[in-house]
């Protein structure tokens, strides 16, 4: 039985442990609640975490990994962690934990190629984390302007040079 087949065979156990570890990155009282997988609308964080981890793991089992698909699969978990009280390393650190979990479940066995795939997944997670953070800062920067300033602008109460006009003035 090759390494991938062993992973397939122990998939449920690996994913369960990975989920447990990730949920335990929250305070104890919170982990107790988020760890219960009941209705996905009553527990969005637990549900998105479980779903995202399972989908990502399945993608890792493919012969050739598609890094874009992995990044998309990680979106729901990373998007949540990007607005919670985690540092950047804490937010994506759960990915590396998969190596330890696999080693424990497969009683010490590991595979360089698969470890490499996990490293690639960690980089994808970090990319996604940065996109989410940039998204947050952009929303913060544009929100008040869009809300109030644009209404005033339309009413002619304030005026400001448009980006296009500024670019044009540069040409002249």
């Amino acid at each position: 039985m090759n390494f991938n087949q062993k992973l397939e065979q122990n998939k449920k156990q690996i994913i369960d442990q990975w989920f447990l570890h990730t949920i335990n990155s929250y305070p104890q009282e919170t982990a107790r609640v988020l760890g219960k997988l009941k209705n996905r609308f009553d527990n969005p964080v637990g549900s998105a975490t479980a779903h995202s981890l399972e989908e990502s793991f399945n993608l890792l089992l493919q012969k050739e990994i598609d890094i874009d698909k992995i990044e998309t699969a990680l979106d729901s978990i990373i998007r949540i962690r990007a607005v919670q009280s985690f540092s950047a390393s804490q937010a994506v650190g759960f990915v590396f934990e998969l190596k330890k979990i696999i080693k424990t479940v497969l009683e010490g066995e590991r595979d360089n190629d698969f470890d490499g795939k996990i490293d690639e997944m960690a980089l994808a997670a970090f990319n996604r984390f940065m996109k989410c953070r940039e998204n947050i800062f952009l929303l913060k920067a544009t929100e008040s302007k869009r809300r109030i300033h644009s209404a005033f602008e339309r009413a002619g109460l304030v005026t400001e040079l448009k980006e296009k006009e500024l670019l044009d003035s540069d040409k002249s």
Binding site: Y26, P27, E29, T30, V33, L34, V83, Q84
Partner: peptide, 20 residues
């Protein structure tokens, strides 16, 4: 009430459980 608050569910901070 503990797991009914959107702030608790979203932030994961136990002090946002309404009871706490």
């Amino acid at each position: 009430c503990a797991d009914k608050c959107h702030f608790f569910l979203g932030t994961g901070d136990p002090k946002n459980m309404p009871v706490l």
